[in-house]
């Protein structure tokens, strides 16, 4: 009975909500710094890499973590900014599946060299996110990108490593399986073929309207 009063009060209380952009233009530094948290595929790749590294020895992580960050920074700077290359969704999905699956493997199956090749690849895809903000100030954008990706993977690794040591060693493989599943889903969606009708409405192959052509 109390709940009904509460529900009635909550139904009567709300006033019209006015949406607004609370942050505005963040600028090149903060936009790039926070980007891993705004781009699902970039976050999934970084999280998958963190999960993979959380299942490896500290000696491997000490080398692999800087390699990952350097690979992301170089791909963003050289391939992304200099040559305008972006990662095809199907390729980024394949990278997520690979790193997620690798996170489920025991360390003896992933020698250091293979681990380095894997994190170099995922780092490169993380740096080539298709909607990474266009840098108006290159120095700020590079520093923001580097810091954002480095902080994201360092903290994700630290939390997964601590969870694996103190709670359950299954944590990294479970996160890896989620990342692989995200990669599978994203890969499946990337196969959808879009067509545009005379009214300018973009329609996917399954007939669902996905977006207006003026966007």
């Amino acid at each position: 009975m109390r709940w009904s009063y509460l529900v009635a009060a909550l139904a009567a209380l709300p006033t019209p909500a006015v949406a607004h952009d609370a942050f505005g233009d963040l600028g090149p530094f903060y936009a790039n710094l926070l980007h891993p948290m705004a781009d699902p595929m970039q976050a999934a790749l970084a999280l998958g890499t963190a999960a993979f590294l959380a299942g490896r020895s500290l000696n491997t992580v000490r080398i692999a973590l800087p390699v990952f960050v350097a690979s992301a920074a170089l791909s963003y700077l050289v391939l992304g900014w200099r040559f305008g290359v972006t990662a095809a969704p199907i390729m980024a999905s394949a990278a997520a599946i690979a790193v997620g699956a690798a996170a489920m493997l025991p360390e003896r199956w992933t020698p250091v060299a293979a681990a380095l090749v894997l994190v170099t690849g995922t780092g490169a895809f993380v740096g080539l996110s298709p909607d990474q903000p266009v840098p108006s100030d290159l120095a700020q954008a590079i520093i923001g990108t580097l810091l954002g990706i480095a902080a994201f993977i360092l903290i994700a690794w630290a939390m997964l490593d601590a969870t694996a040591r103190h709670v359950s060693q299954l944590a990294p493989p479970i996160i890896g399986s989620w990342v692989a599943a995200v990669g599978l889903l994203a890969g499946a969606f990337s196969f959808q073929i879009e067509t545009t009708d005379a009214m300018g409405v973009s329609t996917s192959r399954d007939g669902l309207s996905v977006q207006g052509a003026d966007q």
């Binding site: 500290l58 000490r62 973590l65 902080a151 360092l154 903290i155 690794w157 630290a158 490593d161």
Partner: peptide, 14 residues
């Protein structure tokens, strides 16, 4: 919190 976690992670790694 982020600074502390990053600091602890760096201390463990290096």
């Amino acid at each position: 919190a982020v600074a502390l976690i990053a600091g602890l992670a760096l201390a463990r790694l290096y």
